[in-house]
Amino acid sequence: MEPIFLALIFIAIIAVGEVISIGSRARIPTLLVVVATVFILLQTGILPESYIAASTFVAVGGVLVPVLIVHLGTMIPFKTMMQQYQAVIITLIGLAFSVTAVIVLVTLFFDYETAVAGAGPITGGIIAYIITAEGLREAGLTAIVAVPVTVFTIQNFFGMPLSSIFLSRYAKKICAGETAATLVDATTKEVEIESNQKRHLLPKAFMESNFILLFLLFAGGAIAVFLDGLTGINASLWALAIGVTGAALRIYPERSMEKANSSGITMIALIFVVINSLIGVTWGQIVASLLPVMVIMVVGITGLMVGAIIGAKVFKWDLNKSIPVVLTALYGFPGDYLIVEEISRSVGQTEAEQKRIKDELLAPMLIGGFTSVTVGSVAMASILISTL
């Protein structure tokens, strides 16, 4: 079969997943639908394993992983992070407690390799999962690749309902005037305007060229891979550092890949990498991984919440606000945005109340998600997988 027909089959599955995600308001994530569907098709023999590689997208996705991580480093304006530093620090405290708890307790109950397999994905999204799954395969630990697959696909179902419960409580306090809402939407807009007015290292005309932006991103990814070979430090960490530093020094514009109009096809290629990681995973391995996965989920989520409670005490935040900010590690964007939208509509009785809820919750929730899924999880997964 021609590669374009094979690619069409998989992209159709992705599109169906997106339709279901939109219809469920992200309660059923696209990737869950894609992973579950492809896994069933592979296990039943309806979809031959050779079709995945023959689509040629897997090779493209492998090349794009370090490039995308460079892009992730450009996602959060530095000034916004400084203004929302409390949300950033509370999220990092939650991640630290979660990872530490998983490594210590899961190692006691099972083994260190299983702990590492679950610790990366539970603190973030697709990139942390890819780093973990690929690292396990390279270490010859293919028998436990089912652990990050299962954690990655079900964590959303734990994170979003818990976040909704706590955010609903806090939104009611906002409406009752028991909190001081901060107008973060206006602040964010000011930061974006300021950012757009700043000069970049290259002339403005160059920074508006899709091809030049892609060259800069690929150059950053290539440097990260080169430094990996030179130092032994995971390329993902180098790529993240290059993206953050490059954005701070105005070498990269914020959200570089989106500016280059390339984020959509890049995400499709990355999903193919996720699909490819399902090859060799059996139903028996999934069933065998359920017990450690449940332990990882309970321990990991408890660690996130303990960290959120400690962070709330330090910065005098309401627990109903700090806990969901940290729990964004389980689902990230767009789940964090959609939850705030839904809570503001369901709790706010008037447009003014709905605006107050969004004004106070949107920025810290988005920053929490970016801190965990975009930055923290990539760093933690890279460090942990290098210890195997």
Rank of each mutant, 00 (worst) to 15 (best):
E258C: 09
E258Q: 11
K259V: 12
A260I: 10
N261P: 09
N261H: 13
N261F: 10
S263P: 03
S263Q: 14
S263D: 12
I265Q: 14
T266H: 12
T266K: 07
M267R: 13
I268F: 14
A269G: 14
L270G: 06
I271N: 09
V274D: 06
V274Y: 07
V274P: 01
V274L: 15
I275R: 01
N276D: 15
L278H: 07
L278W: 06
I279W: 11
G280Y: 14
T282L: 15
T282R: 15
W283L: 14
G284Q: 15
G284N: 15
I286N: 13
I286M: 15
A288D: 15
S289P: 12
L290P: 14
L291Q: 15
L291Y: 14
P292N: 12
P292H: 05
V293I: 15
V293Q: 04
V293F: 08
M294E: 10
I296Q: 04
M297H: 10
M297Y: 07
V298H: 05
V298E: 04
V299H: 06
G300S: 08
I301M: 13
T302E: 08
G303Q: 04
L304A: 04
G307M: 05
I310P: 07
I310G: 08
I310S: 04
G311H: 07
A312H: 04
K313T: 09
V314M: 13
V314T: 08
F315N: 04
K316V: 01
K316N: 09
W317Q: 03
D318R: 01
L319H: 02
L319C: 00
L319M: 05
N320K: 08
K321H: 06
K321L: 13
K321G: 05
S322W: 01
S322L: 03
S322I: 02
S322V: 05
S322R: 00
V325Q: 01
V325F: 00
L327K: 03
A329K: 01
L330W: 03
L330V: 02
G332A: 11
G335N: 04
L338D: 06
I339R: 00
V340H: 05
V340S: 08
V340N: 02
E342Q: 06
I343F: 03
I343V: 12
S344P: 07
S344K: 01
S344I: 00
V347N: 01
V347G: 03
V347P: 03
V347L: 07
Q349H: 13
Q349I: 10
E351L: 13
E351K: 14
A352N: 12
Q354P: 05
Q354F: 08
K355W: 00
I357F: 11
K358D: 03
K358F: 11
L361P: 02
L361R: 02
L362G: 00
L362K: 07
L362W: 06
M365Y: 08
M365R: 00
M365V: 02
L366D: 02
I367D: 01
I367F: 01
G368H: 09
G368Y: 02
